[in-house]
Amino acid sequence: MSELFAFFFRHSKWFVFALLAVISTAMLLSNDPYRQHVYLTSAGRGASTAYKFAGNVTSYFNLHEINDDLNRSNAQLQAEIVRLQERIDLLSESAIADTLQLDSGVPHFEFIVAHVINNSVSRPYNYITLNKGSNDGIVPELGVIDRNGVVGIVSNVGPHSARVISLLNPNFRLSCKIKRSDYFGSLVWDGQTPDEAVLEELPRHTVFKVGDTIVTSGYSAVFPEGLPVGVVLDDDTDHNQNFFTLRIRLFADFTTLGNVQVVVDNHAAELKALSAGEENDAKKNPFGN
């Protein structure tokens, strides 16, 4: 027995090395972002406190560009308000005429403004940390946008911070469509540069041209339909394939992310319950008879 202990003691560095290597490899291979404990991510208390401290200083950088973007966005929103007001007036008139009840329920989408306290763009799996968490109403699987376009989706939430899977992360696929023709595909980052991604699985008969705008398709409860994502740069398709792959220049500038909005879908629970019901029905009666 003592010889066995002596053997382990003599070669302890190999056992310690193997143990640490196995632990690290297990951490490395379990890369499902939704299953990681919040304290093992940048949304944990220690990391988020350090990032918030640094964010108080760095948030003043790039204010000039952010201000320009906000002015542009403000002008567009003003025009949108006028257009919508005209439409409401018109609908109200017809509602009075037809005694039709206008929908006065809960708004479909609400937005929570948050600030980016940490962001990476050069790793294969990029994440963003926000300074708001569950105490501010953020829960996992909410969409995140900024003034220019789609940014990512919330994965882990702490009380005062949240971690977002960036659009620059191959774990995140976004359903998008070409605004002009309504053909839809799946947008995913290919790891090349932080301002480009690829739109895959577009049908072969898709009509498009360089410069076409890509927007969200609205086929999920995460993002509303029509949010800007990017523009078509060129066709990346191998011509033996049955689907088109387009290279897209993203609208969101991930290198200077500042303020973002978390999209809260007030109908998400209802949609989930409906989908769960459909799945249960399909399991009970797989042939649909």
Binding site: S24, T25, A26, M27, L28, L29, S30, N31, Q36, Y39, L40, T41, S42, G44, G46, A47, A50, N118, S120, R123, Y125, Y127, R163
Partner: peptide
Amino acid sequence: DVFCDTPGV
């Protein structure tokens, strides 16, 4: 790794 969201790397 906790700071950088790169578990295990």
